[in-house]
Amino acid sequence: MLSRVANSIYWMNRYIERAENHARFIGVTFNLILDMPKHEKAQWEPMLYASGDYDTFKSFYPQSNRSNILRFMSFDERNPNAILSCVHKARENARSIREIISKEMWEHINQFYHSCKEASRREKWKIDDWQDFFNQVKMDSQLYYGIVDSTFTRNEGYQFSRLGRYLERADKTSRFVDVKYFILLPDVHEVGSNLDVLQWSAVLKSVSAFNMYRQAYLTINPAQIVEYLMLDRYFPRSLFYCLKEVEEAIIQITGHQNKQHPAVRIIGKLRSEMEYNDINDIFKIGLHESLDIFQQKLNKVGNVIHESYFALKPEPETEEQEMEQ
């Protein structure tokens, strides 16, 4: 498969996943705010800390009020991570590989983009309009995965799409867990209180994990929630599950024999590290710090993938030849 094509499939999927997760991010914040006691100030900023977009936001908007943040996260094309920007880039990538993907995939991404673009032109937004919009983004992303699942041949291209989707999802789930770190409780003594539990439940819900979590654990307990979202082997948004998928995709692309391949090695190490990790180890280092380290390692995996598959450079002797001519 052409490197450029593989690269586009990979990014198309990362961007769709990113758009979905940003819609979910906002969902969790909404959830939290609606559950807050009346006198608590609405906390919109933690979302920006967790997604890593706080500095970009501040450079364009003086005030962190709801309407500014929602616009910025949804439609502001100066924000490369805005939902519209993500869907736009997903579509540009899809457009450059239309001949590779299924017709239904293209038509859906195209329609997805047009509906976000149309929403961005709307002037007046009520709070439930926003909620409808974020729901729609979530649905459109999930529909996309359904279409991929039922129309895309399980070839190399499919593996690159899986690679992009799960790598992005691993990063985003780690950030969801992190949102909670940035959200302030009114008082230190509130740790473990009802409010604390309420907030953790909201995190669970934002990744559609509430029901599934309930089947695995009986009580809402922060340590168990973190364990579930990070280490669970079967929940499809947990960090460990995502890493397993990334690893499987890399092995499919590279072949089972190739244990020395840099991408196989780096993902294998990270996956096994997670696999044998204990939730107590994570809390010993500190949750936020652990997540930070995880995100850095994940970035390295991304870099190795880029070097291994997309950035094929002419060999040195070819360059010399060219210089001689």
Binding site: M1, L2, S3, R4, A6, E156, F160, I253, F310, L312
Partner: peptide, 11 residues
């Protein structure tokens, strides 16, 4: 390359 046209692939 080598007097031929080639394309860059993942392999």
């Amino acid at each position: 390359r080598d007097g031929t046209v080639q394309m860059r692939t993942t392999k």
